[in-house]
């Protein structure tokens, strides 16, 4: 008969029928793997390695480079806050900061307004529901650079299909200069970003909507709640947790957007559509100033932290989620 060790016993012997019977001693490997601390460390190791190599190290390196004058092909030396002082006096940097904030705020509002509206529409019983939901995802699935190229043509000052259609309809008499003036260019880029981001928001919110129990709506209807009241006091509070998460992601994606701008305007006209990400790239790689480019990228961190904290600690507030107001 084999005596199995009792779980939790580490003595190597177990009491059996009043006698202590010697148990074969576990090898050090078994003992090591039996140790919960070791095991949990080993389980976490792959993820931790990935995070260290692909997240912590680049982040740390970026922060360090921001304090140096490193250039492409040449190691730099520590220069303290010089890069930041220099950026502080750089009008292009401040323009990029303004653009980034403006771009993020307007695009996020646009994406969430339209995305929520679309999610509410899709939440209704529609014929070919699955097909429509799949089609909605197309802008999100298409590689950004492809949709950016399509927008580049759509916004072309000579060949824009929008301008052409409006001219043909007799609504305008000359082509719109979508990308040629700063404000037009900013608005055009924001529109492209909204178009691309709506599906992500809509599908996530749709998933949230489907978790809301119909009984809540029935109860509200019995209480005589109007459609707006049902939305305000049932839908919105129940959506808040997922809204907070989706908004966090959306803000992060929008704030760090690069591809749309790079493919459509390359930061032009005259640098007026640079976002912090494109300016960081412009200065670091083509411009060769790795230190300064890293400093611009690092300067994004406080904004991102603020946006994340706002989404988590404000939107995810239990009171708000329960339909209450702030004290």
């Amino acid at each position: 008969m084999v005596n199995h060790p009792i779980a939790g016993s580490r003595a190597g012997t177990v009491p059996a029928q009043g006698k202590r019977v010697a148990r074969p001693k576990d090898s050090w490997i078994v003992r090591t793997f039996d140790n919960p601390a070791v095991l949990s460390f080993l389980f976490m190791l792959p993820a931790a390695t990935l995070l260290l190599v692909f997240l912590t190290y680049p982040l740390g390196l970026g922060i360090w480079l921001g304090f140096t004058d490193t250039r492409i092909g040449r190691p730099g030396v520590f220069i303290g806050l010089d890069n930041y002082v220099s950026l502080f006096q750089d009008s292009m940097f401040w323009l990029a900061v303004t653009n980034t904030v403006l771009y993020t705020v307007i695009a996020t509002i646009g994406k969430f307004t339209l995305g929520l509206w679309l999610a509410l529409l899709l939440n209704n019983h529609l014929p070919a529901k699955a097909l429509i939901r799949s089609i909605i995802l197309v802008p999100w699935i298409v590689p950004t650079v492809l949709s950016a190229l399509a927008f580049w043509w759509i916004y072309d000052s000579q060949f824009s299909i929008i301008s052409w259609a409006l001219v043909e309809l007799g609504l305008i008499d000359h082509y719109i200069d979508f990308l040629g003036t700063p404000n037009n260019a900013r608005a055009s880029l924001i529109a492209a970003n909204i178009w691309r981001g709506i599906p992500f928001v809509a599908i996530c919110l749709l998933a949230g909507l489907q978790t809301i129990s119909p009984s809540l709506y029935e109860a509200a209807a019995l209480d005589g709640a109007s459609a707006w009241q049902r939305f305000r006091h049932v839908t919105l509070p129940m959506l808040m947790p997922i809204l907070a998460v989706v908004m966090t992601f959306s803000i992060l994606f929008t704030f760090t957007d690069f591809q749309l701008i790079y493919a459509i305007t390359r930061g032009g006209p005259a640098g007026t559509t640079h976002l912090m990400a494109t300016l960081a790239f412009q200065r670091a790689i083509p411009g060769g100033q790795l230190g300064e480019g890293a400093a611009i990228a690092v300067a994004m961190i406080p904004f991102l932290l603020f946006a994340t904290l706002f989404s988590y600690f404000a939107l995810a507030r239990r009171k708000w989620q329960q339909g209450g107001s702030d004290d």
């Binding site: 072309d156 000052s157 000579q158 200069d177 979508f178 990308l179 040629g180 006209p269």
Partner: peptide, 21 residues
């Protein structure tokens, strides 16, 4: 100039020229 040159990248003038613009 023709309107829109502020946004022109390298291929833009080729396209506009060949289109007779």
């Amino acid at each position: 100039f023709i309107p829109g040159t502020m946004s022109w990248l390298d291929p833009s003038n080729n396209k506009a020229f060949l289109a007779g613009e």
